[in-house]
Design a protein around this nucleic acid. Structure first.
Length: 356
DNA sequence: AACACGGGGCC
DNA sequence: GGCCCAGTGTT
């Protein structure tokens, strides 16, 4: 029996009932695929439900503000996805009159839509004969075909793309593509694949050679850098504080945070001169400085280990009367939950200001 | 071609 | 606490 036949038989019995598998609407498929990038189904599902119910059409999403989209995205990570999502919604809504591009090549011109996502939309929505290649597909193919080319090398990326396209079932590209990814997610798992019950035992090169735990091969990741963050939580007598939006191209772009002293090495408690340098406030405006957490909060990312300290800075007078050296927004502490903030900040707010 | 980009799950 | 997972854009 051929690969596709076995795969589709497996899928028919074992597939999960997921909401985006009941539609051919390219908007809904696009939305689900952006949310699922780098994200497991269990984590992405509640976000998909929120977005679809709040923004049933691409026009609804386009008419929202970027802040609103980021707030809804909060906690999902890789926030450039949310910014690109919003940008593309506006482009499709306004420039394309709400009509998504209808083939792989045209879909790829959309911001945030690369090879994988374009293939997913094109095959799921339009039955185009283009194979999806994500981590699941690479894993299944590396084992089934016994390919040890590193999946994240330039050569490997090309090789797996070619093999995936050769194996694509041209009579049913939509179901086939979903099936091979589902098979990788549920059966041909990264750890302890279910080889004992596998429909491919006879043909799977990795299983025949006992190499299923060794494949796929992946080049080493970049090493984790330590960074030290000191957040200044200014407070006045009316429970106001100041925050700013992160700009630039780095981490958490577009999300809000407290004024930040960032360094490569461990920091001492900031003194009034540090506070003045960052905010422009004179030392006479500062009533007192106190560390909230003696042990830094450790926030782990794939490529960063952030050690964060939160510093309470009590202010004489009202923040609304102060002159700052940069543009900060003044908010009541209890209103901070309206803003999109990194999980690190969200956790701090929830632990220090549970009413907020 | 190499790197940057968040968060959650598992053991 | 350490390790694993994973598309797109930028440089």
């Amino acid at each position: 029996m051929n690969f596709s036949k076995r795969l589709l038989d497996w899928y028919k019995i074992e597939h999960r009932d997921l909401p985006w598998r009941h539609t051919k609407d390219p908007y809904v498929i696009w939305l689900s695929e952006i949310i699922l990038q780098q994200t497991q189904v269990k984590q992405g599902l509640p976000y998909f439900e929120k977005f679809v119910s709040k923004f049933p059409t691409v026009h609804d999403l386009a008419n929202a503000s970027e802040d609103e989209v980021l707030k809804l995205w909060q906690g999902l990570g890789y926030y450039s996805r949310a910014r690109n999502l919003h940008h593309t919604a506006q482009f499709v809504s306004k420039t394309l009159n709400g009509e998504f591009p209808v083939n792989f090549k045209a879909l790829k011109t959309l911001k945030g839509v690369g090879d994988y996502t374009a293939a997913a939309i094109a095959s799921f929505a339009y039955d185009e004969l283009v194979a999806v290649v994500d981590g699941n597909v690479q894993r299944v193919l590396s084992r089934y075909l016994g390919i040890d080319t590193p999946i994240n090398s330039t050569e490997g990326i090309k090789e797996f793309k070619t093999k995936a396209q050769e194996l694509l079932d041209s009579s049913n590209p939509s179901i086939y593509n979903q099936a091979i990814m589902e098979f990788g997610a549920l059966h041909c798992r990264p750890k302890s694949p279910k080889c004992m019950f596998c429909v491919f035992q006879q043909d799977c090169v990795a299983f025949q050679q006992g190499l299923q735990e060794e494949l796929p091969v992946k080049l080493k990741k970049t090493k984790v850098k330590k960074r030290y963050f000191s957040y200044l939580v200014l407070t006045d007598s009316e429970e106001n504080t100041i925050v700013q939006k992160r700009s630039g191209s780095g981490i958490w772009q577009g999300l809000y945070e407290f004024p930040l002293i960032e360094s490569e090495k461990e920091q001492d408690e900031p003194i009034s001169s540090d506070i003045n340098e960052l905010t422009g406030l004179p030392s006479k405006s500062i009533e007192g400085v106190k560390i909230y957490n003696d042990d830094p909060v450790i926030h782990l990312l794939s490529h960063r280990k952030i050690m964060a300290t939160f510093i309470e800075v009590k202010i004489n007078g009202l923040l609304s009367d102060m002159k700052f050296s940069k543009t900060y927004e003044i908010h009541k502490i209890k209103d901070l939950s309206q803003l999109a903030v990194p999980v690190l900040i969200q956790n701090f707010i929830e632990s220090e200001f549970p009413m907020a």
